[in-house]
Amino acid sequence: MKDQDQTESGQVPMMQKLLDNPFLLLFIGVASPSILYLGWGLAEIFTLPVR
């Protein structure tokens, strides 16, 4: 993909901007499993009613 896709108004689409930003992708790729896997799982484990 040599040239970025552009809308008729000449702007780069938002999705394209996301895919072209490795550091934003890095943030999303670390945050997503940290919340949905580690965070959610640990929250359930550490709120178990232990007697």
């Binding site: 996301l18 895919l19 992708l25 999303i28 790729g29 997503s32 499993p33 949905l36 896997y37």
Partner: peptide, 13 residues
Amino acid sequence: FLMYILFLQLASV
């Protein structure tokens, strides 16, 4: 590939 970034790691469960 973006779907990998978002979802692949969750398969650990």
